[in-house]
Nucleic acid binder design. Structure first.
Lengths: 230, 230
DNA sequence: CATAATTATTGTCAGTCTGACGGTAATGCG
DNA sequence: CGCATTACCGTCAGACTGACAATAATTATG
């Protein structure tokens, strides 16, 4: 029953897919093929369709625009953005989702997928729409997630070393951590990681023990950043 | 430029206004005057209008439906809810906002405001739409906010005692806290509260010193609940 | 007016967690 | 075999927390 003074609008879902590549936090971006902002970098995303759930739309758009299968990803809602002027195409409210994934090569096949690529977060200024703002919020959320959950393992492959995991924290937080204290904390937290028994040989030096993600999802007590933001 | 296969929908903003009354956490509800769910309790809220911001819509709806002036409130977005079947009137995505306020009498004057009232959260099952779900998420968010921010003071009036503040924590968290440890923690946290110099006489017993909210917003270190949820 | 009852506030003490940092272990290379 | 390199273990002091004892300031009561 449409009524007067009820605003009808479109709802978009935008995705912030983060990974750690080359010791740098990177975000999945696409190059826009259509106007507005044609040719400019943007977060992958698109419009909600009939009968579709918000996460459903997120998974579909992720697949359409990057070829990735988001069904295994931990998609987490960040926030809804509803500024009236945020999109020149008209009134569009966007819901942002965040996911963290290991450093995998992007599928090159597929239609629109060819325009998808990784961009270092530090150099990702100038995205289309209000995507700079969305990205900043999502990265802050990711940093907080590392404090209170075991999601850092989502940045790693199936098997990883404690050093790999520490590197994730250092890259995402942008600060060095003491390896000895970090080891103590991770190994002392029940269910954070469990040893696989395997080892990995570095180019030079002592081999490192391999671990996989444990069953725990929450860190209690958390790993708090010393330098708290404003 | 409307296109095929772009879904047009309405966007609602729903409000979870919490307070502590009679040592119980209560939520502001209205009785629905229109179908669907006519006569049933629901969270205050309504549709986004043209040119309106999300928080703008939240403040306006709060005023229209309860007579409260939300401009002084700390309105915080909880989440967007987009299940296709969540509203029988059609496709409506809702963005929920959370606020905490002191125990003030509701304005009785005003048009729709007469139907607004406080409901204990523990007895708030059976709300219209998916508002039970929204309420549960918002309450959990409020509990977390008490751990990491100074927002508990938002539940108190301008002047309050440490006991008042502790009562807020106990009611919102649903667990008893040691008064001595709580005092130490609050007074030891820079900028949480500052003394007014005044005192309040209880019916019987030693008078309590009065405080007002300090300048800090974040608690570092936080006041973690011992019993962490799943 | 003394004493009890009640509420507020300060203090103590052991256990835990963290940050800082020294030392040891296991590999490859010359 | 010694050396560089990376991984890992141990120690210690300070901070914070949870549990509990003791004191302070008021009203009620005999």
């Amino acid at each position: 029953m449409p009524e007067r003074d009820h605003l009808y609008l479109r709802l978009a879902v935008d995705l912030v897919i983060l990974t750690v590549r080359d010791d740098v936090l990177q975000v999945l971006t696409i190059t826009r093929a259509n106007k507005p902002f044609r040719g400019q970098a943007a977060l992958p995303g698109g419009f909600l369709r009939e009968g579709e759930d918000l996460v459903g739309a997120a998974v579909r758009e992720l697949h359409e625009e990057t070829g990735l299968d988001g069904r295994g990803l931990h998609l987490e809602q960040v926030e809804a953005y509803g500024d009236p002027d945020r999109d020149p195409r008209g009134r569009i409210v966007s819901v942002a989702y965040l996911a963290m994934m290991p450093n995998l090569p992007l599928p090159t096949a597929g239609s629109d997928a060819s325009t998808a690529g990784w961009t270092p977060v530090a150099q990702a200024a100038g995205l289309a729409f209000d995507h700079d703002h969305i990205l900043a919020d999502a990265v802050e959320r990711a940093r907080t997630r590392l404090e209170f959950t075991t999601l850092a393992t989502a940045f790693c492959g199936a098997d990883f070393t404690i050093g790999d995991l520490r590197n994730v924290y250092e890259v995402v937080w942008g600060q060095r951590l003491d390896p000895r204290n970090f080891n103590r904390k991770v190994l002392g937290t029940e269910g954070f990681v469990e040893p696989t028994g395997g080892k990995r040989m570095p180019e030079v030096g002592r081999p490192a023990a391999l671990y996989r993600a444990g069953g725990a999802t929450r860190l209690n007590p958390p790993i708090l950043r010393t330098d708290r933001h404003g």
